[in-house]
Nucleic acid binder design. Structure first.
Lengths: 229, 229
DNA sequence: CGCTTTATTGAGAGATATCAATACTTGTGG
DNA sequence: CCACAAGTATTGATATCTCTCAATAAAGCG
């Protein structure tokens, strides 16, 4: 386990708006979020881009770069944050010696794949309001895992970021927040969100209530909780 | 390398329509497509489902199950096919001894993540005709990698499967095929497709012509070529 | 050869995008 | 500390794309 701790090469502070890495840049390391919030964004050749994920403390970014030795996304801080660098070759060396680390790393990679599929399912089959409800509940779950309130939190991302992530325009996000507030499901003051009627949100999001379709796994040192967006 | 060959536990034949594995089932192995075509589909708690990928020979399925020891998708044969079983624990054991195998496995997992992001980008930012052009070109590229014609091929999936994969209705797919044919970009006879004006398709798909934004990697024994859908 | 599945095509409805105007925040420099 | 500018969010009116429902046609299968 001391070996595992040695993996943490260095801590890096990034200010709001700064990049951790950029699309096309040589992939040297993974980054674990220590505190703060990040977003990942992918770009198309013609310039269009989309937010593909938001990352909370404990989650790992940069996994998309392993396949081609080049990051295939941008990673940007949504607030002043700190990340830990994890050099891939050291992680691979160590994981050959420590089977539990190897297994954990594979689980992290695999969960990233599953989460991507869940997100695809949302973009491909859900209407905008369903996607937004899903987004709020997902965020709530992940904040709760970290000891924060599940029912009240501050969004670190703009309406534009949320819209991009959900595949809708920012105006649509704004209108839906207003609609959710009108029907009493949530209270919204700018970026402060209170979830009032969680059951209604779950129904909208297609979560069968009192059913655990989300798979929760025990925490671990090199951890990246399930449900990263 | 003989060790690597030993990973191939057994070959399994599946008939058109049969499942290789199902969502919720205990994850025991990965499967490499030997011949034929598979689709992956994910379901929502409320019953809606979506095709999240099509898989050609050489590609590996089941990666989504590693994170939770349970498959999170269904895998279905679109035609009579054969797959090879690869037991995860044996792959992990061997990859601790063979660094090149370890690295290759990580690349495969990572590419799956990147491809997921590319697909998200398509569903989130592209219009239906752009998605379909993108789909045709992607399929063409992958068939060409396997020695098939890049410009003429037979679709193994229904309009419904394509629509599900692209996040549109099957009628929309059918209309777009007709429209593409009218404008002379393609010729379509049921499931037989001829790409006529590839440049026009590339323009639609947002691929800057004469630019290689897709990253191609050398093949490998335990291979899963880039671009799996 | 008929039955079932799959694909095509049309007409109308609905969801979300687009364009535009206004309001609210936040940060910065005088 | 205030005022202004820049960025962010809200809301409305209209346009557009895609869906939905429906009818027909074609293909695959037993």
């Amino acid at each position: 386990m001391t070996k595992v701790d040695n993996l943490i090469e260095s801590r890096v502070r990034v200010k709001k708006g700064e990049h951790i890495y950029q699309q096309g840049q040589k992939m040297d390391a993974l980054y674990s979020v220590r505190f703060g919030t990040l977003k990942s964004e992918n770009s198309l050749a013609d310039g269009r881009s989309q937010v593909t994920g938001f990352h909370l403390p404990g989650e790992i970014v940069g996994l998309d770069g392993i396949g081609s030795n080049v990051y295939t996304s941008n990673s940007v801080a949504l607030e002043d944050s700190e990340v830990c660098m994890i050099h891939l070759n050291e992680l691979e060396n160590l994981s050959r010696q420590v089977p539990s680390l190897q297994a954990q790393f594979h689980r992290i990679l695999s969960r990233e794949i599953s989460q991507g599929h869940q997100h695809l399912l949302a973009l491909g089959t859900m209407r905008a309001e369903e996607r937004l409800a899903n987004f709020l509940l997902n965020l709530s779950d992940r904040l709760a895992l970290r000891g924060y309130s599940a029912s009240e939190f501050n969004l670190k991302m703009s309406r534009e970021d949320i819209g991009s992530y959900l595949g809708v325009q920012l105006e649509t996000v704004s209108r839906l927040f207003s609609r959710f507030a009108e029907t009493g499901m949530v209270q919204i003051k700018q970026r402060n969100v209170k979830l009032i009627d969680i059951a209604a949100l779950e129904k909208l999001a297609g979560r069968q209530s009192s059913n655990q379709s989300t798979i929760v796994c025990p925490p671990f040192n090199l951890s990246s909780e399930p449900g990263s967006m």
